[in-house]
Nucleic acid binder design. Structure first.
Lengths: 211, 211
DNA sequence: CAACGATGGTGACCCAGGTCACCGTTACAA
DNA sequence: TTGTAACGGTGACCTGGGTCACCATCGTTG
């Protein structure tokens, strides 16, 4: 189904003022991203704020030499906090955005940010709230990797997945989990088995059932 | 030396519009924090944005049960990004602010934030820039603890200290470094000695000289 | 059906770094 | 002067988790 910018804004950004949505519809660009594709921000400077209209994307922090770590999901109604900030300079800051479902994003050139900020409370609140949430999320990530052991991180990860994906049958491979937690498949397999013995999950081929 | 709010603003926040500074001087509160004192934000909700006028503070992330990790310094002219966000709800988000020098902060109640944001470009730019810098800093922290080994983190830490403190004689104990990196004194001592053998630093009692 | 790739299980091994125990040195206070 | 606390050094030991090697199972495609 093909929708136009205004329809997406109406559907997922109800808190925006009608006039704001009208202005945005004029200037924004729509982009479709097929599942699996990554918007690497490692060189290509995004000069637009990214609003998610459809689908689901995963945001990763990339290590200096190979390796990555999962930060958080972006869903319809969310925005990429980084893309709101990075705009002015082409700082790329080793972050990777990957679509895990076919997704649609709305790109609003950053040059309008300041103007919208001053004229629309709906936009101001949205931006502040976005920063706040992502900041919290990064702090949570920091204390997980700094203070928690892998088994605890795994439990948290699985809980998070269930919540975000809205199902307790997680169709995710051990290898993917290992990538997201920046660990290795073997370790994740071992820990999962331990969780199964504790009766917290049930392992199946291709998916994990949470109990 | 006792200065008033306006004098501090003139000294360290030259990018603010004169009218903004005038308004702020009316409503802001000044607080002095002696060296060593901590503004724990674990329960006490800061309803004000914290601007640093004098001194130097360290911001830590606290672990769930004891333990902490150093995030970054706040210096005159900086603001605590978290205090800009957390304001509305009393979310405390396990962060600790510790003065390492006698410090003075300017507290601007958050209820003025939105208003200033819309009326003063100087304030808007300051806030956006603050978010951007701190976000970057958190991302850097994340990839250090996620991807780097302790020796590399130590080197980075020392370089950072030299830069921020403006001297290559670092008056800091091994124990403090261990706390900041969330490691243990013995490990830091061993790694420092290795760095000394590599000719990168010279160890003295009470301070470390960087070469 | 055969072959291959993706997935997952398992044991053996290794190592960074956390912990423990203990000691030496320096500074400062009683 | 003598405690005493802070600081720093060092060896012994342990463990979480990363790595390697290899094998089993399943689904898909030629």
């Amino acid at each position: 189904m093909m929708m136009d910018t205004r329809a997406y804004l109406d559907a997922h950004f109800p808190q925006f003022e009608p006039e704001l949505k009208a202005e945005m519809a004029e200037i924004a660009e729509i982009r479709n991203i097929p599942a699996g594709e990554t918007l690497m921000r490692t060189g290509q400077n995004i000069r637009s704020t990214v609003l998610v209209a459809e689908g689901r994307l995963k945001l990763y922090r990339e290590g200096h030499d190979e390796g990555e770590i999962f930060m958080y999901y972006l869903e319809p109604g969310n925005a990429c906090a980084l893309s709101m900030i990075c705009g002015q300079q082409q700082e790329t800051s080793g972050v990777m955005l990957k679509a895990i479902e076919d997704s649609t994003v709305i790109l609003v050139p950053v040059k309008f940010m300041e103007n919208f900020m001053q004229r629309y409370k709906g936009w101001y609140n949205f931006v502040v709230e976005t920063y706040r949430e992502r900041f919290e999320e990064l702090l949570t990530l920091i204390d997980h990797i700094a203070f928690r052991a892998m088994d605890e991180r795994l439990v948290y990860y699985l809980g998070n997945q269930r919540e975000k994906l809205g199902t307790s049958k997680l169709h995710i491979t051990h290898g993917e989990i290992a990538t997201d937690l920046h660990s290795s498949r073997e370790v994740i397999s071992r820990l999962l088995k331990k969780l199964e013995q504790q009766g917290k999950v049930k392992l199946h081929r291709q998916y994990i059932e949470m109990l």
